[in-house]
Write a protein that binds this DNA or RNA. Structure first.
Length: 563
RNA sequence: UGGGAGAUCGUUCAACGGCAGGACAACGGACUCUGACUCCGUGAAUCAAGGUUCAAAUCCUUGUCUCCCAGCCA
């Protein structure tokens, strides 16, 4: 982390900026993050947020937040608000520079009029199908629209009437007059205004014509005096058009578009369309379902902004298509949480243990470190008594070699307390399942090694049955069964992981009942958990598993099967 | 079959004509009252073929593969 602060990030975009600065093109760097408010931000957006705000911070410049709300369909205030929340939570600040493309509509209209006056734009009466037909194909040039040579006066008049609402939706568009034979399809007289009477979430029915992205975006950048307009690779084809509008209409310094590869992550999907489908078809509980790769979902899951930022720094910025291993994200989360999450004990799948030689009714307060490497994080007391719960996995009747936990004839250390020794087990008559274990404890071993020098290798966690509190624990796993659901054949929803959520009732140490929403803990030997911000109640805490601990035992245990 | 872009360890990012390096993942070991953390170690790559050069991942030529573009979406 300090390393990163000392040596600032670099990548091909920052190199371009360095060159531009060296060449004296600008005296300050201005970037922008331009989401369309028609969905929640996801980890891919977070990459862009970190890039744009990160560059602004590094170069002591500015980064604007601009809602790119030029198509009212699907846009809403809910998304505007969630986007702001998420960016703030990620740790970035746009200060007073929140802008809306919809605030530029009048200016954009004037730009369009200028284009018409210069003979560079015309009103076209072709319908959508006809425009498509006239556009040609990837290998054949298009044909000029029959309306291409209307007079400036007629175009001015018609465009004013479009604005005034005199024409039906879809009946006419304004087009830039460029080149129908261009090998770049985006240059074949692109539509720059369409008629749409859907009503805008912000400005209502004020406008019935809306500018298209290619027109609005570059000019919004220009109006905001953006120096470097950073976007994703799929806009590379649009750059000539971006430059065309800017060169036609803007005097003085012009923004420069730079494209980088969007993030793809294994075992999830990152396209807005697919995420919307998951939400609308109720395949997840909402945009902030902890399994979602959305910022809101990751927040609710318990990921920290620091971990997400670190992840974004580590994946780098380049132009290669990529599919980043989600293990890297999980690594960043563990790395951060290991430092700051206080430890606690919780038993997820309980097995009752009775300590035969422990006095009935006796309770001892065991002093437990909140962090094994950080004494400054303090200690807490956890009650110990005759009847405990341990994890079912921590007992085996016929343990394999290398197994260090409890079994017939074995001893094990109870974390932060005594060494106990197996005596007998009791089975449920009906099911044959083990219902309880009887053990004895060694009173000499409270927070001390056995005085006779014998070695006790295994350490397991526990809670006192009488004192533990029940909690709902949600065990989240990857949302999809395959590494690249978006790239696979067939419907991506068929590839959802049916085991992505398992809910258990766990026993947690009593202090956890008072844990604040969104606080995070390491349940020792299990994983990191976060108090759910929506569903947790003081009388019934709800924990989300953020990420499991690395588990090298699981690999050893799986070995026979692997062979 | 047009135009644009990209090919480096399993993954990802670097190396900007001069010893192919880091991170994650994997594997082996040490330590351990968390099979965690930490520490030490191992294996692992320049799309292909030619050319230029004392020297090529990098420059040139040809080829191959992948991605993007034919919304009145962004």
């Amino acid at each position: 982390m300090t390393e990163q602060d000392v040596s600032p990030q670099s990548d091909f975009i920052r190199e371009i900026i360095d060159d531009d600065l060296k060449a004296g093109k600008h005296d300050a760097v201005a970037t922008r993050f331009p989401p369309e408010p028609n969905g929640y931000l996801h980890i891919g957006h977070a990459k862009s947020v970190c890039l744009n705000f990160g560059i602004a911070a590094q170069y002591k410049g500015t980064c604007n937040l601009r809602m790119d709300d030029t198509d009212p369909a699907g846009e809403s205030l809910e998304f505007v608000e969630s986007i702001q929340n998420d960016i703030r939570w990620l740790g970035f600040d746009w200060k007073d520079r929140l802008f809306f493309a919809s605030d530029y509509f009048e200016a954009l209209y004037q730009f369009a009029m200028t284009l018409i006056r210069r003979g560079k734009a015309y009103v076209c009466d072709l319908n959508a199908d006809e425009i498509r037909a006239y556009r040609g194909t990837l290998t054949e040039p298009g044909r000029n629209s029959p309306y291409r040579d209307r007079s400036v006066e007629e175009n001015l008049d018609l465009f004013a009437k479009m604005r005034a609402g005199e024409f039906e939706d879809g009946s006419r568009v304004l087009r830039a007059k460029i080149d129908m034979a261009s090998p770049n399809v985006t240059m074949r007289d692109p539509v720059i205004y369409r008629i749409k009477r859907s009503g805008h979430y912000r400005i209502g029915d004020k406008w019935v014509i809306y500018p298209m992205y290619d027109f609005a975006h570059c000019l919004s950048d220009s109006v905001e005096k953006i120096t470097h307009s950073i976007c994703t690779l799929e806009f590379e084809n649009n750059r000539p058009l971006y430059d065309w509008f800017v060169n036609e209409l803007i005097e003085g310094p012009k923004p420069r578009q730079i494209e980088f590869a969007r993030l793809n992550l294994t075992y999830t999907v990152l396209s807005k369309r697919r995420l919307i489908e998951l939400v609308e078809n109720r395949m997840v509980s909402g945009w902030d379902d902890p399994r979602m790769p959305t910022v809101a979902g990751m927040r609710r899951r318990g990921y920290t902004p620091e971990a997400i930022r670190e992840f974004c720094a580590r994946i780098g910025v380049a132009k290669n298509d990529n599919l980043v291993d989600i293990a890297l994200l999980e690594h960043c989360v563990r790395e951060d949480l290991n430092e700051r999450a206080p430890r606690a004990m919780a038993v997820l799948k309980p097995l009752k243990v009775i300590i035969d030689n422990y006095p009935e009714g006796q309770v001892e307060e065991m002093e437990c470190a909140n962090h094994p490497q950080k004494p400054e994080m303090g200690t807490r007391k956890v009650p110990f008594s005759r009847v405990l719960y341990i994890e079912r996995d921590d007992f085996m009747e016929a343990p394999p070699k290398k197994y260090k936990r409890l079994g017939p004839g074995r001893e094990v250390r109870l974390r932060n307390s005594y060494v106990i020794k197996f005596v007998s087990l009791i089975r449920d008559e009906a099911t044959g399942e083990i219902s309880e274990l009887h053990c004895t404890y060694d009173p000499e071993t409270r927070n001390a090694p056995p005085p006779d020098g014998r070695k006790v290798d295994g350490v397991i966690h526990w809670v006192s049955a009488e004192h533990a509190v029940p909690a709902t624990v949600r065990l989240y796993d990857r949302l999809f069964r395959v590494p690249d659901p978006a790239g696979a054949e067939g419907k991506f929803t068929d590839l959802l992981n049916p085991g992505s959520l398992e809910v258990v009732t766990a026993w947690v140490e009593p202090g956890l009942a008072a844990a604040a929403p969104e606080s995070r803990f390491q349940f020792e030997r299990i994983g990191y958990f976060c108090v759910d911000m929506k569903d947790s109640l003081p009388e019934r805490p709800v924990f989300n598993r953020i990420v499991s601990l690395r588990d090298s035992w699981a690999k050893i245990a799986a070995e026979p099967a692997r062979k």
